[in-house]
Design a protein around this nucleic acid. Structure first.
Length: 164
DNA sequence: GCCAACGTTGGC
DNA sequence: GCCAACGTTGGC
């Protein structure tokens, strides 16, 4: 990241029964490749806009109490997601296989902070300053979302973090 | 488990 | 290119 460029902020959803924030913390070097994104808009963010050093909120979806559990940073920018070409992967993409190349992109992220108290969706809904955050909008299914610096800081403020 | 919202597919 | 049908996401 050049000094002139400002950092970007993101939110990435994950289903904790598949891959939780704690799974990321336990991973070697607290780092993983974020494979399996199969939506073009989300892919485009990772391909075009994710930069090293960007901050990512890790959000658990599809659970009783959806919440932001931790923060990660981008350690490797977008590169081809090979799982699309692996028939054994749950993220296998028949069309990609036929073409012989994966149109899908992944990034590497490293966990940096854990929320001592995860910032829950309920909490966010009660917070007037979070009204416009994308994840709260109706039908916001996008699994990779941009977050404003203001919203990012608000979430930091709502849940105290512990450095990893 | 329900279902609204959304993305994708495919017939025409 | 339209749009109905279908599949998926994800909150509730």
């Amino acid at each position: 990241m050049s000094p002139k460029e400002s950092k970007n902020f993101w939110l990435m959803k994950t289903e904790p029964n598949v891959f939780s924030f704690e799974d990321l913390v336990k991973a070697p070097n607290r780092t993983t490749h974020w494979e399996g994104v199969r939506n073009y808009q989300a892919r485009n963010f990772m391909r075009d806009s994710f930069k090293k050093g960007d901050q990512v909120l890790i959000y658990h979806s599809n659970v009783d109490e959806p919440a932001v559990f931790g923060i990660a940073t981008v350690v490797r920018e977008g590169y081809s997601d090979p799982f699309a070409l692996d028939p054994k992967s749950k993220y296998f993409d028949e069309e990609a296989k036929k073409k012989g190349e994966s149109p899908w992109i992944m990034v590497d992220v490293k966990a940096t902070h854990r929320f001592k108290n995860p910032v829950t969706r309920e909490q966010l809904k009660k917070e007037p300053r979070a009204k416009t955050i994308m994840v709260l909008q109706r039908g916001a299914r996008l699994s990779v979302q941009p977050v404003s610096e203001e919203h990012f800081n608000l979430i930091l403020e709502l849940g105290s973090t512990q450095k990893l």
